[in-house]
Amino acid sequence: MSSETKRTAGRSSLPDAHPVIEFRHASYQLPDGRALLRDLNLAVERGETLVLLGRSGAGKSTALKLINRMLEPSDGAVLVEGRSTLEGDPIELRRRIGYVIQEVGLFPHFTVEQNISLLPRLEHWPDERIRARVAELLQLVGLSEAEFLHRYPHQLSGGQRQRVGVARALAADPPILLMDEPFGALDPLTRAEVQCEFQDLQRRLKKTIVIVTHHVAEALLLGDHIGVIDAGALVGLHTPKDFMSATEPVTAAYTANVRMFEKLEAPE
């Protein structure tokens, strides 16, 4: 993986020696002292996709929010492109990080077009470029421009909304992408399609991506590494290849689950 990190896309003057995203003993506590994340150590190299897998309430969304400084670590540090997220301007940091939130959060008073083009507009792109970008993104997420461009979020299905959310996060072509269950509301068939398209996209765009999911299959398909989070701690970090043979209990429970379905499919 890291052998092909030559490609820096001219974005960062920093050498590629350090990871694009790095958690160093990062913890996050609520004001009342309850720890949501404990001593997290993780690194994501340029162009790599990390999948965070874990039960509901394990702390996956919290981990994502530490990366774009929606939350600040109460201990340790989170580094993006070699710099602590606490250094510098959070707005500037977030503009370089596409973020698909779990609840999608489309702007209800904006059309699909306006939702997707918001960030390019804030960055004062020329109109022509914005129009082209929106068309490109809609195609990318598999929504027909003619049909959806001028719809409002309440006129979309849950899955369509999620896809618009993904398009919006990609709009300003950020080098880093955080996706919190981006395909959660999709039916299995569309989900498989979108996953394949997304895989294709990953290969072409070489973005650094962190995806949160509950689905092992999705993790195996999209991840270069899979981090298993349980009760606020990272309990395993594997490549898809050695994920299936991992021995720690939480990961083993996931793989047992996958094997059960494999048995259903191939009863012989």
Binding site: M70, I91, I101, V104, G105, L106, P108, L119, L122, G165
Partner: peptide
């Protein structure tokens, strides 16, 4: 205003005024 909408706005790097 729905929290998710605020979070999405903040997360994409809009300023408080925006």
């Amino acid at each position: 205003v729905d929290r998710a909408i605020r979070d999405a706005a903040r997360g994409m790097g809009m300023t408080e005024w925006q």
